[in-house]
Design a protein around this nucleic acid. Structure first.
Lengths: 137, 137
DNA sequence: ACGGATTTGACAATCGTTTTCAATAAGTCC
DNA sequence: GGACTTATTGAAAACGATTGTCAAATCCGT
């Protein structure tokens, strides 16, 4: 396997916009869409073009620095996670906060199911949605 | 099973287009996007407007008669499943064929993870994507 | 600071999906 | 069957998220 798409493939130059976007994602502590992030940046006085936000999120995603999920409406949402390891999420449907959960159990389930039906496993999704303790009061 | 347990019993008139769409989905035996279905219908000589395909898939989905997933690109794909019971899927990313897989394992994992972090579980997703034996040749 | 490659950002373009609305066709009543 | 009411259809326009374009701005090694 070549490693052309590995994490090493990433931005070459550091710009204020890129830093601002990363910071905003970190500060968010949850999943955010490109537009939400753009709004938050604008709100705090940063002027970053929407196109730039999209491009950088894309770059961060393919560099494996952020996780991407799709809302049920098909919108892409991004999150800066604490680990680069493969993991899943427990997401609060009220406030968007989320917990990273590792899961050997899911990995082996996915592989087992695929193999059992003659599929070559490529990927899998597994996220739990619920209401966190803070929001359920 | 009768059809008295449909959801919101709205006006329902049977049309050729609706029947054609349902049939095409059944014949597909896997996940299809609205456009793919539209193409397949056109290919077999049926003339059904793309708008109508979208509308009917939407209606079927909210009636719980078909399952909806999102591809990693955010496109909605629909499948007529054999069971109304809760289940997950093993989907071929090449041809869309899929297998319905029930999984106590996933259910208990979801509940356990939620509880462990003080969340009230609401829902969860868990699908495996891969390449089926037919497509991997 | 210079100069060339990278990145930005306003705008246009694209793609999937929804809305609009006039025309069509189902179901009903006679 | 024929008239009538109204859900449904479909072509085109509208829409929202995302990507492509390209000149101008910016970064960085020299």
């Amino acid at each position: 396997m070549s490693d052309m798409n590995r994490k090493s493939t990433g931005p070459h130059r550091s710009t204020k916009q890129r830093a601002a976007i990363k910071d905003a994602l970190v500060a968010a502590r949850g999943f955010r869409s490109a537009q939400e992030l753009h709004d938050e940046l604008k709100a705090e006085g940063q002027r970053v073009g929407l196109t730039t936000v999209y491009r950088n999120l894309q770059a961060l995603a393919s560099a494996g620095e952020v996780d991407v999920l799709r809302t049920s409406e098909g919108e892409a949402i991004y999150r800066r996670c604490g680990t680069g390891e493969h993991h899943h999420h427990l997401v609060c449907t009220e406030c968007g906060n989320s917990v990273e959960v590792g899961s050997e159990e899911i990995e082996s389930w996915a592989k087992r199911v695929a193999k059992h039906h003659g599929f070559t496993p490529v990927d899998h999704t597994a996220e739990v949605f619920g209401i966190c303790s803070g929001c359920s009061k």
